[in-house]
Design a protein around this nucleic acid. Sequence first.
DNA 1: GATTTTACGTCAGTCATGTTGACATATATG
DNA 2: CATATATGTCAACATGACTGACGTAAAATC
Lengths: 178, 178
Amino acid sequence: MTDVKSGPNPLFLREEELRQAIELLFFAYRDFTAEPDQILADYGFGRAHHRVIYFVGRHPAIAVSELLQILGITKQSLSRVLGQLVAEGFIRQRPGQRDRRQRLLELTEKGAALERQLTENQRNRVARAFREAGAEAVEGFRGVLVNIMDEGNRARFAPPDSHAHGSDAPSTSSTGRR
Amino acid sequence: MTDVKSGPNPLFLREEELRQAIELLFFAYRDFTAEPDQILADYGFGRAHHRVIYFVGRHPAIAVSELLQILGITKQSLSRVLGQLVAEGFIRQRPGQRDRRQRLLELTEKGAALERQLTENQRNRVARAFREAGAEAVEGFRGVLVNIMDEGNRARFAPPDSHAHGSDAPSTSSTGRR
DNA sequence: GATTTTACGTCAGTCATGTTGACATATATG
DNA sequence: CATATATGTCAACATGACTGACGTAAAATC
């Protein structure tokens, strides 16, 4: 470590710490997506296909509008990708029974197989990282990432025991002082 | 794997935990980059410009080849982005004195100002997350993300007390991927 | 000193993924 | 019936990545 002239200088350390976190996110996310991208290329697919396959697998019978909300893209963007996945038999569409305008999406066996292949890769990577970092670190990882997210997205990651009164009232940690 | 439906089923919990981590990375990274992307749009720039500005700011007088290694893209891809940044006066190039083939890059005042604006945003987001999650969580966050990264990239994030003798010990075995 | 390698640039084409805007169709709902 | 909603589609465009080929100056090596 380079020794600091004229005292510890906490401001500099903090700046350095924050920049390291920024870079950590950049490099980790890139490596995290690199291998699935490779696999997808064999199918002529890209990362966008991965996302669609992932979230359709995660939410079977999801409506297009819900998927659009999760992905945060336009229907025209989704259309191309989803159209390919349907045309090539990775995703099946059925009209909703409550609302027949909806086209509910689910993975076919073929789609589920690809989902497994892609997710297994990332899951293994995360599992390894969790194992090497330890259980406490996992909690810290989640705590920080949840707070990096926009508040509106945090609801998906609410702790299991949280009994939400009323609608949401997020602002989980009011006592973050140290 | 066969799914077991009776009892607490730790395997299912683990699967759920890992999937939550995968999604956490997706949503957090997206939100993390959204605001800078907005700012960049005002300048007619994109996320690629951000990365270049960031790393040139972080490593003043960096050579093009080093920047390419960090970014992990081709020189043709960098060329357009870097060319714009130089043409519009955000980055300055000077020939290296030890090796005059090199064009060493550094931010101009204008470039440094934009870098500050962009990074301040992400730094504030991370700072808030660190504050809310607590100091222990920060260590966990780093521990997990470092292990999610490919090994070849971890050297940048070595802890200060790292037993590496020789001060830098790059060992950048990473060749250009794909 | 000649040759080869390196650092960098550039032209040209392609692909994946996002965007807007406009319009169409079927169904639900008032 | 009128209108809103869910979805799809056509067209045009921007960004950022890729490959391949070629060029030039300087360094390194034989």
